[in-house]
Design a protein around this nucleic acid. Structure first.
Lengths: 132, 132
DNA sequence: CTTATAAATGTTATATTATTACATAGCGTT
DNA sequence: AACGCTATGTAATAATATAACATTTATAAG
């Protein structure tokens, strides 16, 4: 079992927003959306985002500078993330494929590096966009 | 064989700089370094970077907003990139592992997406930093 | 060679993303 | 209460990236 994290006020507001949106959100778009709730400054958003990423409730889509709620029920794999990104409609979803995550988590080469984390982003066309 | 790309003046200046540095360089650090050669504006740098990424001469390290010269002799795999990143010394190197690239290039799942590109970033401690 | 076209360049301004620095408040432990 | 830690508030600014527009250079077709 995972440790249950008690989110602080700002963290909760921001997590709920991202989670409900169901898609990647950018920091300043988040800021805009939570200003009515009293979160006024970028730093307040970035601090909450940092924490939420740290505890695995959200992930950053690096190629898009955006944040998406973790879609793996228990957020067990926040150090091993994989996403599929449609280059046409920009739809993003988290890939939960145990073979893939096993393969990558166990990956090692002769560089002498000890890998403790990875992030993988696949790009392509989603079903809908392919058929257009 | 690959098409030989004739780099333009700015592209050449910027590629040479990145290539010689041997490590990831940030856009504004590049800008600073090429100002004496007449490249004065960020956009000039970003345009060259865009082109160099497009033709596979350099890659963007997304998690670092930095650019590194392709280390695979012929840049054949610019649509299939993998890097190892030391979280202590920030050393980055491109992973050339045919099993890995085959595995990922052939990856598919039941999402219906057609994957045409991927970028993978591994994080950990390099040999040197591990032993400190 | 010249005309057309695409690619690259130059320049200014501005948009977007993210952090520094410093002060204050809340919360759990002893 | 006193301490340590986490979170918050606020202002300023740094770092990363793009828009818009004018001009020049390279490439290819006639």
């Amino acid at each position: 079992m995972q440790k249950e994290h008690n989110l602080s006020r700002n963290q909760k507001i921001i997590f709920d927003l991202i989670d409900k949106s169901g898609e990647p959100m950018k920091a300043y778009s988040i800021l805009f959306n939570v200003q009515k709730k009293g979160i006024k400054a970028p730093l307040q958003v970035y601090r909450a985002l940092d924490k939420l990423v740290e505890i695995g409730k959200i992930h950053k889509i690096e190629s898009r500078n955006a944040f998406i709620a973790c879609q793996n029920s228990s957020c067990q794999i926040s150090k091993a993330t994989a996403f599929s990104i449609c280059e046409s409609c920009e739809n993003v979803s988290e890939i939960s494929n145990s073979k893939l995550s096993k393969y990558l988590s166990n990956f090692s080469d002769d560089s002498g590096m000890k890998y403790s984390k990875y992030n993988l982003e696949f790009f392509g066309l989603c079903k809908k966009c392919k058929s257009k």
